[in-house]
């Protein structure tokens, strides 16, 4: 059985590994998401800030044999102009290939939504590359819809 729980210090290396994989996956969808050479260090510094932080939520999925096989990075943000005022944002969400299509994604998302609500969020959003059809299908399946567009162009 796979367990979903909050990440601790000892999980950091494993979580960084998974988040870097996700950043590399993002690169496949848009040339403006090409990862930097120092992506590993950047991710490590960034993810460290999500451990033991009140407004942040870092979840991991752990397999029977104790491997970290999934990670979800999220936080609660205040919406300055809109109701509801607090929004839980899922920023990074990755599951190792061999553990996909087993409902682990849903388990992690359900847990994240539950905890983000406990942290005050009344709306949940997810950020991912526009061309990632797998994510589009995943979130649509669980009742999400597109709200804001982010358009880019190089200068």
């Amino acid at each position: 059985m796979v367990k979903v729980r909050k990440a601790g210090e000892k999980d950091l290396e494993n979580v960084v590994e998974l988040v870097v994989r996700l950043k590399r996956l993002n690169s496949e969808f848009d040339p403006l998401l090409k990862v930097r050479d120092d992506v590993y260090v950047q991710v490590k510094n960034w993810v460290s800030g999500y451990l033991n932080n009140k407004g942040k939520l870092l979840l991991v999925a752990e397999s029977d044999d104790g491997r970290i096989i999934g990670a979800l990075v999220s936080e609660v943000r205040e919406r300055l102009f809109y109701e509801p005022r607090m929004e839980g944002v899922i920023m990074d969400f990755y599951i190792m290939p061999e553990f996909r299509r087993r409902g682990i994604g849903k388990m992690m998302m359900d847990e994240a939504i539950k905890m983000l609500r406990e942290m005050g969020a009344h709306v949940i959003s997810a950020e991912f590359p526009a061309q990632n059809q797998i994510s589009v299908a995943f979130y649509r399946k669980y009742g999400f819809r597109p709200m804001m567009n982010v358009y880019v162009k190089e200068t």
């Binding site: 994989r21 590399r24 996956l25 496949e28 190792m96 290939p97 061999e98």
Partner: peptide
């Protein structure tokens, strides 16, 4: 193998190879 670094790339570009890697 299932944990190779380029697995996601394979998933998108060569699902047949990806499937066998799993």
């Amino acid at each position: 193998h299932a944990e190779r670094e380029d697995m996601d790339k394979l998933m998108l570009n060569n699902p047949w190879k990806y499937d066998l890697a799993l």
